[in-house]
Amino acid sequence: MKTKNTWKTIASFLMVLFTMPLGHALMILMEHLLSPTMLHYTAFGMGALGILMVIIGVFANGDTKQTLWGLFGGLLFWTGWVEFIFMYYAHRHGVLPEIVNGEVVTKPEYLILSATFGFWTMFMMLYLFSVRTGCNFLNWCQKVFFGNRRETIVARPMTRHTSIVTFMELNMILWTSYLLLMFCYDNHFLGDHHPVTFLIGIGCLIGSVFMFIRQLKLSSWGANIRMSIATVIVFWTPVEILGRINFFSEIWTDPLNHITEMVTVLTAFIALAVYLWYVAFKRKRA
């Protein structure tokens, strides 16, 4: 059982991890290869396809399949209807990027993303006061804030659809991560070279290790994949911070000059994704 859990955890973690550089590379390629008009239509279609996949996942049978539908649908949704829509309106209204020493360090769409903090808080109020979840962080917050009254205030969970749960988990954690990074990078608050920014990166790295260890205890594929979403995004936070200060070269921001590396990552991702789909269908037949 321990051997099976180790393989499940590593495979799930790597598959979700590979989506991070691939997602960045996909956006860069679309910007380079598509005309502005075609880019907007393609991005809108991508987001719509993502929503459709999540809805299909609601009616799918099996925890693993529902999780995969929610994950891949959520990735397309975030890229198409969040990042590209922010890009569209940032360019349409002339939002300027942040430039340091002649180099663009923050694109316009990420600068205006910080303005969604109020909406993020609104969602967090819902999760904190009205939803019983399996999220360790939210459970801890509810115990701290509500104490013995938790069972009264948060009496029951919402209707659970694994595809929707995965979709919301992915988007909420991505959203939280981006807001945290934009706060850290903003010189009016901290700045990308501020000690607190580095401490946040170190804290996230250490936290991701403990999350990975906890993930090793999960015996089902679906639960492992869902836990991997949180683990990977927390792990990716220090990666983003180190890339911001040019500690290493982010090959996913220049995929056309790192074709071999990106194709290798894409091949590994496809192999893992196909394997997990195979596992999901095999379990159904069993």
Score class of each variant (00 low, 15 high):
residue 239 V to Q: 01
residue 108 P to W: 08
residue 217 K to Y: 05
residue 91 H to A: 15
residue 230 A to H: 03
residue 107 K to F: 14
residue 129 F to I: 11
residue 229 I to H: 01
residue 233 I to H: 07
residue 9 T to L: 00
residue 222 G to C: 15
residue 119 F to C: 05
residue 102 G to Q: 08
residue 130 S to D: 08
residue 34 L to G: 02
residue 79 T to D: 06
residue 215 Q to V: 00
residue 159 T to N: 04
residue 238 P to M: 08
residue 28 I to F: 12
residue 250 E to I: 09
residue 12 S to N: 07
residue 223 A to N: 01
residue 121 T to P: 02
residue 37 T to A: 15
residue 160 R to Y: 14
residue 89 Y to L: 10
residue 223 A to S: 09
residue 91 H to R: 15
residue 117 F to E: 00
residue 220 S to M: 01
residue 33 L to K: 05
residue 28 I to M: 11
residue 168 M to N: 10
residue 282 K to N: 12
residue 17 L to Y: 04
residue 187 N to E: 03
residue 232 V to G: 10
residue 37 T to H: 15
residue 230 A to M: 11
residue 141 C to H: 01
residue 92 R to T: 14
residue 222 G to Q: 15
residue 115 A to H: 13
residue 193 H to T: 15
residue 218 L to W: 03
residue 65 K to L: 14
residue 134 G to A: 05
residue 116 T to A: 07
residue 174 L to R: 07
residue 95 V to D: 04
residue 135 C to N: 03
residue 132 R to P: 08
residue 145 F to T: 04
residue 7 W to R: 12
residue 230 A to F: 08
residue 117 F to T: 02
residue 131 V to P: 08
residue 4 K to S: 06
residue 275 Y to M: 15
residue 32 H to Q: 06
residue 11 A to E: 10
residue 123 F to N: 01
residue 65 K to T: 10
residue 176 T to W: 14
residue 284 K to M: 01
residue 131 V to H: 13
residue 173 I to M: 00
residue 175 W to F: 13
residue 270 I to L: 15
residue 75 L to T: 00
residue 87 M to T: 10
residue 11 A to V: 13
residue 132 R to A: 12
residue 165 V to P: 00
residue 98 E to W: 09
residue 35 S to R: 15
residue 164 I to W: 06
residue 130 S to H: 12
residue 117 F to A: 00
residue 27 M to I: 14
residue 3 T to Y: 07
residue 181 L to D: 02
residue 190 L to Q: 05
residue 175 W to D: 07
residue 95 V to T: 15
residue 101 N to Y: 02
residue 185 Y to F: 09
residue 94 G to V: 08
residue 50 G to M: 07
residue 121 T to Q: 09
residue 250 E to K: 11
residue 99 I to R: 12
residue 270 I to Q: 14
residue 205 L to K: 05
residue 131 V to C: 09
residue 24 H to W: 00
residue 162 T to W: 02
residue 96 L to D: 08
residue 71 L to V: 02
residue 33 L to Q: 06
residue 264 T to N: 10
residue 186 D to G: 00
residue 280 A to K: 10
residue 250 E to N: 13
residue 227 M to L: 07
residue 18 F to E: 09
residue 251 I to V: 07
residue 110 Y to D: 04
residue 51 I to C: 06
residue 168 M to F: 14
residue 243 G to K: 01
residue 237 T to L: 15
residue 66 Q to C: 03
residue 91 H to K: 13
residue 3 T to L: 01
residue 103 E to R: 13
residue 240 E to R: 12
residue 97 P to R: 12
residue 223 A to C: 00
residue 185 Y to N: 05
residue 171 N to P: 01
residue 149 R to Q: 04
residue 231 T to N: 07
residue 223 A to G: 09
residue 9 T to I: 03
residue 286 A to Y: 05
residue 96 L to Y: 09
residue 178 Y to E: 14
residue 170 L to C: 04
residue 87 M to A: 11
residue 108 P to M: 10
